[in-house]
């Protein structure tokens, strides 16, 4: 498709210009958090479940930078290992939402008519269900595990991805190059996957980042009501819930995971904004 090639060249050039800039602080912060969690065994000498009942609620020190919890476990270590799980749920659910939502939305946009009505009204109904309530019922039914949390969160976020996918696909398929492709006899699947999808990807990526922030909050909420992962696993939400019970004994216990959740969600939202504005600039520029 020579036509699409000429269209994609300036887009790619602009993309290169963007990536060559210094990453924004939000992305840098996210990167630091992710790297510290991933390489937690290199950052801390303790295990996340190394119990030391003789030293509960130890104050911050050179040995325990954030002190210890009620069982004498190193708080920083648990935060880093907990972050692994929170970020895993976050990433996994975003992938699930992205895959389901994209197929869902693109199918609706491409087929239009009755099929579109059915698909999008289903999305509307799904989005009308309170997320926490739905998640609580699902967790009660299927149990609380890393897998169930990831799948449930992913399914809950899929409709928002579907809406975005449908919207940008309709916008994209209304352009001349798509009509020309059809007129030249190109297959719809080929056009959608080879030409349309790369062009709607920035919008979907922006939505995915927003979903990541939502997934982070959803996981933390479920964990806070005690329906997140179960010990010995931990996430930031689980630590927040456990720390809340000892708010007066050791505020750091609850504040530290809360701050990490807040910073991560804030950075994700900023990154999503940046992605969105970049996409917007691409559209309005001549």
């Amino acid at each position: 498709m020579a036509e699409s090639g000429t269209i994609s060249v300036p887009t790619a050039a602009r993309r290169r210009r963007v990536t060559l800039r210094i990453p924004p602080i939000s992305v840098l912060l996210l990167l630091i958090i992710v790297l510290m969690c991933v390489f937690a065994p290199l950052v801390t000498p303790f295990g996340p479940n190394d119990v030391d009942p003789a030293h509960p609620f130890a104050a911050a020190s050179g040995q325990h930078w954030l002190g210890t919890d009620e069982l004498g476990r190193d708080l920083l270590t648990r935060l880093l290992y907990g972050g692994r799980l929170s970020l895993t749920v976050c990433a996994g659910s975003v992938v699930i939402a992205f895959l389901i939502g994209t197929i869902w939305g693109v199918s609706a946009a491409e087929r239009r008519g009755f099929v579109e009505e059915i698909l999008m009204r289903t999305a509307d109904v799904t989005m009308a269900i309170p997320q926490i309530l739905f998640a609580l019922v699902c967790v009660a039914a299927f149990g609380a595990s890393l897998l169930s949390l990831t799948v449930i969160t992913g399914l809950l976020l899929a409709p928002t991805s579907a809406r975005m996918a449908r919207s940008v696909t309709i916008q994209e398929t209304s352009l001349d190059y798509y009509s020309a492709g059809i007129a030249y006899g190109a297959g719809k699947i080929r056009l959608l996957t080879r030409e349309v999808f790369p062009n709607i990807l920035p919008a979907l990526a922006s939505q995915a980042v927003i979903n990541a922030a939502s997934a982070m909050i959803l996981e933390a909420s479920l964990s806070f009501v005690g329906l997140g992962v179960q010990p010995p696993q931990m996430s930031w939400g689980v630590l927040l819930q456990q720390g809340y019970g000892f708010l007066y004994n050791d505020p750091t216990y609850a504040v530290a995971p809360a701050v990490l959740i807040l910073v991560t969600v804030f950075c994700l939202n900023l990154a999503a904004n940046r992605l969105g504005s970049t996409r917007h600039r691409k559209v309005v520029r001549p």
């Binding site: 119990v51 009660a140 609380a144 329906l227 179960q230 010990p231 456990q242």
Partner: peptide, 25 residues
Amino acid sequence: WNISAQILQASLKKIGINLKIQNTD
């Protein structure tokens, strides 16, 4: 209860027995 469960889990682990903690509403 949850703290007790974690203490028991750590104790049983030392003798090779797993304790799966399940908390429900």
